[in-house]
Amino acid sequence: MKSSFADYQDADRRLVLLKALESAVQYRANVYLLRRFAESLGHVVGLDRAEQDLAWMAEQGLISTVKTLDVTVATLTERGLDVAAGRAKVPGVQQPAPGG
């Protein structure tokens, strides 16, 4: 199965979001902060795309989400922490580089 550039972008962006949550206080951040972090690493992330990524990662059990005053807040799960650290693999999320 061939992957497209968009597939690589999606997988890398999801890893970036997981890594952001890994370093956040209490493993939690809102969608706006996560977008800014991803954009600082070269991803162009609209609100719809960020919300879709968070919903997808919640379906995979990598994060949990709550909506407060129309703002999505994501919290990293144990499984998500394992994926961010490279201890587990999930198709659709880039593996971190060694030491990263």
Rank of each mutant, 00 (worst) to 15 (best):
V73F: 11
L69D: 15
K67W: 09
L76F: 02
K67V: 15
V66C: 13
E59K: 13
E59G: 08
M57P: 02
M57Q: 11
Q60K: 07
G80Y: 01
D53K: 02
A58Y: 09
D53A: 03
G86Y: 05
V83S: 01
D53T: 01
L54A: 04
Q52V: 08
S64A: 08
D53Q: 05
A74G: 06
R87F: 15
L62C: 05
V66F: 07
V66L: 09
T72M: 03
A85I: 06
I63H: 00
R87A: 11
R87Q: 13
T72A: 08
T68I: 06
Q60C: 08
R87Y: 11
L62H: 04
W56C: 02
E59D: 14
D53P: 08
S64I: 10
A84R: 00
V71C: 10
A85R: 14
E78I: 14
V83F: 03
T77D: 08
A74M: 01
V83E: 00
L81S: 12
V83K: 02
T65W: 07
W56V: 04
A55H: 10
D70C: 05
T65K: 10
E59R: 11
L69W: 13
D82N: 15
V83A: 00
S64F: 06
R79Y: 06
S64C: 09
A85M: 14
D82K: 15
A74P: 05
A85L: 12
I63W: 05
T68F: 05
A55L: 10
V73K: 02
T75H: 05
D82R: 12
V73Q: 01
E59W: 06
A58V: 01
T68C: 07
E59P: 00
A55M: 12
W56H: 10
V73G: 03
L69S: 13
M57N: 02
A74S: 02
L62S: 03
M57I: 04
T75M: 03
V83P: 10
G61M: 04
I63A: 00
G80M: 00
E78Q: 15
D70N: 11
G86Q: 09
K67C: 10
L69V: 08
A85H: 13
A84G: 03
L76K: 08
V73I: 11
L81Y: 11
R79V: 01
A85G: 08
G80Q: 04
Q60G: 02
L76T: 02
L81D: 07
A55I: 05
L69R: 13
L76D: 00
V71A: 09
A74Y: 03
A84C: 09
L81G: 13
G61N: 01
V71E: 13
E78V: 13
W56N: 10
A84P: 11
R79D: 05
A55W: 10
D82T: 07
K67L: 10
L69M: 12
S64P: 07
A58D: 12
T75C: 11
V83D: 00
R87W: 12
